[in-house]
């Protein structure tokens, strides 16, 4: 039962996306009509707080930051003006719990996984994140290298609810059990107090934490998409069976086709290049 909408909508979205690529915003607006939780408005949820570089200064309504910019671009393609976009905040748990949602779609670096897809719907991915290893300078001085063998010997930490954890467990297979935390702030705090050496984040987050949160943070290396079993792809999260999904996918396809998604990525996540690849 749950597989049906995903696949059929996927194909539907591709077809419609091809059609809509040349269409106007007006046409897409008609697609969303009557399907949003508040008529004439698009309600978008993000995390509380929302972090750079996804959202600048925790103010998504400014449209600054990668996810904020993507949200407004999608809204625009769907035919919503900037002032017709409403923001709400939600935690991960609120997003995946069963029952009615208070948002049309939710973006806070939700990785698309088959298990999650049984409970909620995801849009087409809007970003494929490489996983990156964050360490402090001390570990580099002590000889940590962007090689799997070297990474095994480090003490690992991760945010408990992320897809980074299986990567640590299955790909790196560290010698001692990783310690787990609620959020990025706690992981970096544990790094500062020397309780863990390394943690795995998506690359943009790792770059931000290395540059801003840690005094001596270093992004040691990144996993190329083909080294991870399933590359980590971020999707817009929607309630299971949300009729809006087709319109959202259509809008994302349009953004990919006309190159604006790549432009947004280049603007906000440009440093993501130049980090060594882990061997």
């Amino acid at each position: 039962m749950t597989n049906f909408p995903l696949k059929s909508l996927f194909f539907g979205a591709v077809v419609m996306g091809l059609v809509a690529a040349t269409g106007s915003a007006q046409a897409a607006g008609a697609c969303a009509e009557g399907k949003t939780i508040e008529a004439g408005k698009l309600t978008i949820a993000t995390g509380n707080p929302a972090y750079y570089p996804w959202v600048v200064d925790d103010k998504p309504e400014d449209g600054k930051g990668f996810e904020a910019a993507v949200a407004y671009a999608v809204a625009d393609k769907m035919g919503f003006a900037k002032d017709e976009v409403m923001w709400v905040r939600s935690s991960f748990d609120e997003a995946i719990q069963p029952g009615a949602k208070n948002f049309d779609f939710n973006l806070q670096q939700f990785s698309i996984t088959p298990e999650r897809d049984k409970v909620v719907d995801f849009s087409e991915p809007y970003y494929s994140a490489a996983m990156a290893v964050l360490v402090r300078k001390g570990s580099v001085d002590a000889g940590a290298k962007p090689e799997l063998a070297s990474l095994k010997g480090l003490k690992w930490g991760a945010v408990a609810g992320t897809t980074g954890l299986p990567v640590v467990l299955d790909l790196i297979k560290p010698n001692s059990d990783p310690l787990l935390y609620d959020d990025n702030a706690n992981v970096t705090e544990a790094m500062k107090s020397g309780q863990i050496d390394a943690a795995l984040f998506d690359l943009p987050t790792a770059l931000y934490l290395a540059a801003v949160v840690l005094d001596d943070g270093v992004v040691l290396g990144q996993f190329p998409a083909d080294r991870t079993e399933k590359p980590d792809q971020f999707g817009l999260l929607m309630a299971d069976g949300n009729p809006l999904k087709a319109c959202v996918d259509e809008a994302l396809e349009a953004l990919k086709a006309d190159g604006s998604l790549a432009k947004i990525e280049a603007e906000w996540l440009q440093e993501a290049t130049g980090v060594p690849v882990i061997k």
């Binding site: 748990d93 408990a160 609810g161 544990a190």
Partner: peptide, 15 residues
């Protein structure tokens, strides 16, 4: 603050 006890393990599975 890090230790993976039962509630944390539940949270991991939940995610």
């Amino acid at each position: 603050i890090g230790p993976v006890e039962i509630l944390r393990q539940a949270g991991v599975y939940k995610s």
